[in-house]
């Protein structure tokens, strides 16, 4: 596992914030994912050693929380909310539009690695439903038209 010096320093600062090193496992995994785009298998042992926790516990954490990717995702990771308010306001059409445009199913990734699509649960944006999160950003008040525009824009 290779990290730039400044990233290692950042991790040191994160760990130092907490009364116990193991508390830093989520923020450190977020850093790992930010740096690599996902959490590579080698990272588990590295994080376990860094935080003095058993690799088994890092494995558990990685498999439990939905935001961690254990394999690379698309450059634009499309996370469409499918909970009730979004469902009532047209989520299924949004998902269908994306699937049609990109030729993938939920859970899939385009062959060129540009896009991946997952359905997620409530993102706390029910007032602007339907919506999706793309990487870190919210795209709210979607329409099928708007989704097509976004996909075209990102395809370029």
């Amino acid at each position: 596992m290779n990290f730039a010096a400044n990233v290692l320093e950042e991790i040191d600062r994160i760990v130092a914030r907490y009364p116990r090193a193991t508390s830093a496992v989520l923020p450190v995994l977020h850093v790992v994912q930010r740096e690599h785009g996902f959490v590579p298998p080698e990272a588990k042992a590295w994080v376990a050693a860094r935080l003095d926790m058993p690799p088994a516990k890092v494995e558990e954490v990685l498999s439990f929380y939905t935001m961690f990717h254990r394999a690379p995702v698309g450059r634009k990771h499309l996370q469409v909310c499918r909970s009730l308010s979004c469902n009532l306001r047209g989520e299924e059409e949004i998902t269908a539009t994306i699937c049609r445009k990109l030729g993938i199913d939920p859970g899939g990734k385009t062959a060129d690695g540009k896009f991946s699509l997952v359905q997620v649960e409530c993102l706390g944006s029910c007032g602007t439903a339907p919506m999706m999160q793309v990487n870190d950003d919210y795209h709210e008040g979607l329409t099928p038209r708007r989704v097509e525009e976004l996909l075209e824009e990102w395809s370029r």
């Binding site: 193991t22 977020h30 935080l51 929380y65 939905t66 961690f68």
Partner: peptide, 22 residues
Amino acid sequence: RGAGAYICGEETALMTSLEGGK
């Protein structure tokens, strides 16, 4: 920051998560 788990809104699960677990 959490990492995607509704259950972490339950106060005891939040604490377990904050301590570094599921």
